[in-house]
């Protein structure tokens, strides 16, 4: 029994302060991202959610350049980016893709400049990599309070606009007819998304930010159609993915003889990706069972679809 235990949790796993910080910050970020993510996936704004991580990374490199706190840079430019996306036309389904693309393209140009200026001024050479990939193991424990507070702000604003947001997500026309300020609700939601994404890309890097925002929520929404359930399941998947990913990354140091280990972001994303693929299975099985019953008229089903 003990052997099995040490095989799963390599020595020192629970004692390591980095592991504890990683799981604490990762857990907070996973919950905030999962709650925001359910609405992001339902509203079809995954591109916006991902683009905001690049936009806030540009803010991060700007902050690095002028000596501001990275948190201000990440969240600040993220909010500006979200507001511009909303202004150009993120609220209309048709122009959303393009508006996001334009803002993202500009942000990429700006990060090219900021990173170039940072590297030529000789501050840090690993800046691009740090900002793109980040690492949950290198979080300074001092950023935890800021992460927790901003996370709470994002959650509180989503909770406040929860009902009108849900209605205007499912049916903008009915929402408008009932007097919901659809445009304003959409803008508020984008701002909450910007805070959540800025926070997560600072804490755990741009890759994990998108993975935690979209993956758990999308998997949960494939498993249930009730929003409250989906939020709960998404939080659960997100937190479990963080825990499992950190554990595997920690253990991977002991795999083989090279003692190189693999990055934690790789494991967390892999867990999320596999979960998403697996979440499609119940629906596929149900569809097959239904097809079995309706095998007599497969052609008609095809035309109707």
């Amino acid at each position: 029994m003990h052997q099995l235990y040490t095989a799963v949790f390599e020595p020192g796993f629970f004692g390591s302060p980095q592991v504890r910080t990683a799981i604490a910050v990762g857990g907070v970020v996973a919950i905030v991202s999962a709650v925001t993510g359910v609405f992001t996936v339902m509203r079809g704004q995954s591109f916006g959610g991902h683009a905001l991580s690049d936009v806030s990374a540009a803010g991060g490199s700007a902050a690095l350049l002028i000596g501001l706190s990275p948190l201000a840079g990440f969240v600040g430019l993220g909010i500006v980016g979200a507001a511009v996306m909303d202004m150009i036309g993120v609220s209309r389904l048709r122009g959303r893709d393009l508006a996001t693309g334009i803002v993202l393209g500009t942000a990429i140009g700006l990060s090219a400049l900021f990173l170039y200026l940072t590297t030529t001024s000789g501050a840090t050479s690993g800046a691009p990599q740090q900002i793109l990939f980040g690492s949950i193991f290198t979080i300074a424990s001092g950023t935890i309070p800021a992460v927790a507070i901003l996370g709470a702000v994002a959650l509180a604003s989503i909770a406040t606009i929860c009902r009108p947001l849900l209605l205007s997500t499912v049916s903008p026309d009915i929402a408008a007819a009932r007097g919901v300020p659809v445009r304003l609700v959409g803008l508020l939601y984008m701002l909450a998304l910007a805070v959540s994404v800025g926070l997560s890309s600072l804490a755990i890097g741009a890759i994990l930010s998108t993975a935690l925002l979209i993956g758990p929520a999308a998997a949960a929404l494939r498993l249930t159609s009730r929003v409250a359930w989906a939020v709960g399941i998404a939080c659960l998947i997100g937190v479990l993915a963080i825990g499992l990913g950190v554990l595997l990354a920690y253990d991977s140091y002991y795999w083989g003889s090279s003692h190189l280990g693999l990055p934690v972001s790789f494991f967390i994303v892999a867990v999320i990706f596999v979960t998403y693929l697996a979440s499609g299975l119940p629906a596929a099985v149900r569809a097959r069972a239904r097809n079995g019953e309706a095998a007599a008229a497969p052609e008609r089903v095809k035309i109707a679809a």
């Binding site: 996936v41 079809g44 704004q45 995954s46 591109f47 959610g49 991902h50 793109l132 990939f133 890759i207 994990l208 998108t210 993975a211 979209i214 993956g215 999308a218 494939r222 990055p263 972001s265 790789f266 967390i268 994303v269 892999a270 999320i272 990706f273 998403y276 499609g280």
Partner: peptide, 16 residues
């Protein structure tokens, strides 16, 4: 699945 969700997940998997 939804196209934007799938794109996001494919992207993060490749980056990971």
């Amino acid at each position: 699945g939804r196209r934007d969700v799938v794109t996001a997940l494919a992207l993060v998997m490749m980056l990971a």
